[in-house]
Design a protein around this nucleic acid. Structure first.
Lengths: 216, 216
DNA sequence: GGCTTCGCTGACCGATCGGTCGGTTTTTCG
DNA sequence: CGAAAAACCGACCGATCGGTCAGCGAAGCC
């Protein structure tokens, strides 16, 4: 508590354990990582892990919480955005995808949770966080629609799922795509192209939305 | 081998073990399921599981293989499709999403694999299957583009990722959406709406593509 | 009939799991 | 300084893990 390190009041060691746990849990899932693995990777004894976190599950929940805190901060920044549709959507898409890739272990963790069927406490927690961000995105789209920036007949819920779904598949498949040989778009180019195609549609040549720097 | 049961030459018991394993692995992941769990759920002794499958990993790979066989059969049916863009995309999207939901455990299994980082043998296998289906979809889109049914400036790779990404997010989030209160579109309606929005774009009122039964 | 093969089982194995405990070092504070 | 508190450790615990093994009973084959 000397310097109050911005994002937490945890000890250095406790934070290091948390960071290592986030990486390992993200890479291999809860059951794929032992407390011995975490202790060894963090350079401490296994007993010390239990000194800072009373159980493996508690540590796991702490990882989940810290990841969700980061993500919520991102979403709140997006809420009070303004501008025209292409730039707005571009900005959000860009930041969302970049954030997924930057914190890939946390992202993987949440996806893993959505796959699990059980109604466990952590599962519900992960669903709550996802639902919360979904609501935020939906609200933003609804506002766009009210202002006439988004066509009235657009189903905003479907749009939201399509947009974050695109990010999801890019995130999950980027390694596969790399192996496939063809040149792989970086995240920025992918996000930009996807948003452009979403706005203009894929059936005809573009006309309604601006075209300026998109032909790069 | 008496009746040669259509899809395999395995014993009844061996098939039952396989089916149970697919469900459990899909629900909880490889490390989240013990061979005891599988044996108990299948109503056999644990030793019998090892009689039919030499190791847990071999059983897991068998599950993966049977899942990929099903999926490949679906893809091949899609390849020799013909018609106009809206119907074509609608058909593919419809069947792909429906297949994901029908075999949700297999789908979950593949997603889990894409999350894992290790270059293990099963991981590579899962990536190969996904890459293969990705290539098939890409080829179909390229043909559409050659025939002029798809706008020339469309990036087919991005389109493919957007489309299956939409399915992915629907698949992952359907439980969350249910909890969210608002009416949840069924898979068919979701797929139809997504394809329509992809074709027409979201920025303007539709004109180029047909509109007939979409206002349902 | 006998003899082999096959599906199947309960009992057991060493290894590893999450978690605990007693004790030692380091830090904090009056 | 000295005492209390917090950080940290090696050794250990019962439970469960994946996997093995000797043997049982029914079916197929001569």
């Amino acid at each position: 508590m000397r310097i109050a390190p911005a994002d937490s009041n945890k000890t250095d060691t406790a934070q290091r354990i948390l960071a290592v746990a986030e990486r390992l849990f993200g890479e291999r899932g809860f059951n794929g990582v032992s407390t011995r693995d975490i202790a060894m990777a963090a350079g401490v004894s296994k007993a010390n892990v239990f000194h800072h976190y009373s159980s493996k599950l508690v540590l796991y929940e702490a990882v989940l919480r810290s990841g969700s805190a980061r993500f919520n901060a991102l979403l709140l920044r997006l809420a009070d955005d303004s501008g025209e549709l292409p730039e707005l959507l571009d900005d959000f898409s860009q930041q969302h995808l970049q954030s997924m890739l930057e914190h890939q272990n946390a992202a993987a963790l949440f996806v893993r949770h959505l796959l699990d069927v059980g109604g466990s406490a952590e599962h519900v927690m992960a669903e709550n966080i996802v639902e919360q961000s979904h609501d935020l995105l939906m609200a933003a789209f609804a506002a766009l629609q009210r202002e006439g920036k988004l066509a009235a007949q657009v189903d905003t819920r479907v749009l939201a799922l399509t947009l974050i779904g695109g990010h999801l598949s890019f995130f999950l498949l980027r390694n596969v795509l790399v192996r496939a040989g063809q040149p792989v778009p970086d995240a920025g180019a992918f996000s930009r192209t996807m948003v452009r195609q979403l706005i203009d549609g894929i059936a005809r040549s573009p006309s309604s939305s601006d075209q300026k720097k998109l032909d790069q």
